[in-house]
């Protein structure tokens, strides 16, 4: 009877031990389980800015080819910028790294980045493709016809020559200039023409101006010229 009780007691101890071992294993297993990955979005966006001479932090991504320009990557919120590494590419060619990139004067298109890769500490990569427009705005030559304050002998039928010129350093790269001639506040789109003849001017004061716009939308305006018409044909 006593032997039977001992056996029963030993069995109970074994059971307790097994339960304890299971509990420990369970607790240990629970302690070793990985936490859920942090899916909260820390970085909201990455922006690219251009700085050049008089331009700072422009998002238009337009530069003048004649002077050095700087591209800068900015992370929002800004405190995470330290955790991000940046690499600048032109297509597949790596051009540099760091949060800013300097474009030298008269850089060729292959020297200007068009891809930014941002990598966080976990190795996640964000790729941004962009296009930097290297363009110089057109600029008017001051020489025009009629010259400012010119007096012309003409009647209403007489054709008067209007001519002007502008220069654009990008012209040789395929950029085109288009003109809008403004005579006495009347606008005439004259396309690429740089001289026209117009009639219908009465005696007195008149004015003309020209607006030039290139293919990229950069423009210049010719300062308004004033001219005077005097009918010296003897018809009056």
């Amino acid at each position: 009877m006593e032997q039977r009780n001992r056996s029963t007691r030993a069995l109970l101890h074994f059971g307790k031990g097994l339960a304890a071992l299971f509990s420990c294993t369970l607790v240990a297993a629970c302690l070793d389980a990985p936490s859920y990955p942090d899916t909260s979005k820390k970085i909201e966006r990455i922006g690219i800015f251009v700085s050049q001479e008089d331009i700072s932090d422009s998002t238009l991504l337009k530069i003048h080819p004649s002077s050095e320009a700087t591209l800068r990557a900015e992370v929002y919120p800004r405190q995470y910028k330290k955790e991000i590494s940046f690499k600048w590419y032109h297509d597949d060619t790596k051009l540099g790294s760091g949060d800013s990139f300097s474009i030298p004067p008269y850089a060729s298109s292959k020297e200007i980045p068009n891809i930014l890769k941002a990598t966080d500490q976990e190795g996640n990569v964000y790729k941004d493709t962009f296009n930097i427009i290297s363009n110089t705005p057109p600029h008017f030559d001051e020489k025009t016809s009629p010259v400012d304050n010119d007096t012309l002998c003409a009647n209403k039928r007489t054709s008067i020559s209007f001519s002007w010129n502008s220069y654009d350093v990008d012209y040789s790269y395929g950029d085109k200039n288009f003109y809008t001639l403004i005579i006495d506040k009347e606008e005439y789109f004259v396309g690429s023409l740089t001289s026209v003849m117009q009639s219908g001017f009465s005696d007195g004061k008149h004015s003309f101006s020209v607006i030039v716009a290139d293919s990229y939308g950069d423009s210049d305006t010719l300062q308004t010229r004033t001219f005077f018409i005097s009918d010296c044909s003897g018809e009056r």
């Binding site: 005439y188 004259v190 003849m197 009639s199």
Partner: peptide, 23 residues
């Protein structure tokens, strides 16, 4: 009315090009 040269324009050049524009 918004054309170059205006109707009945006179003294147009015989050489060096005549330019036309309209809207």
């Amino acid at each position: 009315t918004n054309v170059i040269p205006a109707n009945q324009s006179n003294g147009m050049p015989t050489h060096g090009g005549v330019h036309f524009a309209w809207t």
